[in-house]
């Protein structure tokens, strides 16, 4: 059981929803990443997703497309991401996942990557273009090194497939809240409620965390009510990370991160008593 699973289970026992924040590595500049990770940790996020930029991020809306382009221009590669995690891990036990696309990992060498990620202190991987039925080659190596592999479920995923995704996933199942890209306008209403409720019933081996399009506490609560927690990405990049260089001091930066984290943290408690 790695840090991620332990943390999610602990939150569940405490009756608290999880909050994870996504940030693109090396955005808006290389030097920002260590600071952002530290500030997120101090602000009390339950886990962090560090985005590994890719030249062709085809599941991303304009915000993460742009941050990825900036990061690549800043020379960010997998080594940079792994080093950033290593430094973070010397000071914190907060779970951290790497999120990205499969080709850079494939090029790096899957086995080598999983080994390096684990020794750097990474807890899990989320790969946007690697559906569960293509992920076995990654899962095998990830398992050897104790890394979770999180797969995504979308509102149009069939019940059978959800069951298979649940079986193939470790850490949690990522419930994409909408049909669309990251940073899209969130949808609310009966259909989303039904989808998340169905997901919650079907997923029996993992926690369920919801993401895509969350910009406010209301958004977070609307999704968290049916799940074990939420993940926020584009909104953080746009509202906080984008202006990183304009803050005067590290204290200002910490304050901005703190305020953002408070503004999206779900305030409802958990009613689920599923032991997983």
């Amino acid at each position: 059981m790695n840090r991620l699973t332990t943390t999610l289970n602990q939150l569940q026992r405490n009756g608290t929803k999880a909050l994870g924040i996504f940030v693109t590595a090396g955005y808006p500049e290389r030097e920002a990443t260590d600071e952002i990770l530290r500030c997120l940790d101090s602000a009390g996020v339950d886990f962090i997703e560090l985005g590994m930029p890719f030249s062709d991020p085809l599941a991303e809306g304009s915000t993460i497309q742009e941050t990825s382009e900036v990061a690549l221009r800043n020379g960010v590669d997998l080594e940079f991401c792994l080093d950033a995690v290593s430094r973070f891990r010397q000071k914190s036990d907060t779970p951290l996942l790497l999120m990205g696309y499969i080709n850079p990992i494939y090029k790096f060498g899957v086995s080598n990557f999983c080994s390096r990620a684990a020794s750097s202190g990474v807890d899990g991987l989320i790969i946007a273009d690697l559906p569960y039925h293509e992920s076995e080659f990654l899962r095998d190596h990830a398992e050897t090194h104790g890394l979770s592999v999180v797969h995504l479920v979308t509102p149009n995923t069939s019940r059978n497939r959800i069951e298979e995704i649940d079986r193939a996933s470790t850490g949690f199942v990522y419930a994409v809240s909408l049909i669309g890209l990251t940073g899209a306008d969130i949808e609310r209403g009966r259909e989303v409620d039904e989808y998340l409720t169905r997901l919650n019933e079907t997923v029996v081996n993992n926690r369920v965390l919801a993401g895509f399009g969350i910009r406010s506490r209301n958004d977070a609560n609307a999704l968290a009510v049916h799940t074990d927690g939420v993940i926020v990405g584009s909104a953080f990049l746009k509202e906080v990370a984008a202006s990183w260089v304009s803050f005067d001091s590290i204290e200002e930066k910490a304050k901005a991160v703190d305020a953002f984290v408070k503004s999206v943290r779900p305030t409802i408690g958990t009613t689920r008593v599923v032991e997983r």
Binding site: L58, A59, D129, L130, P131, H151, L152, T154, N156
Partner: peptide, 11 residues
């Protein structure tokens, strides 16, 4: 070959 796509496209 294969199907290396976001989950949304699978159905």
């Amino acid at each position: 070959g294969g199907q290396f796509v976001p989950e949304t496209l699978m159905p």
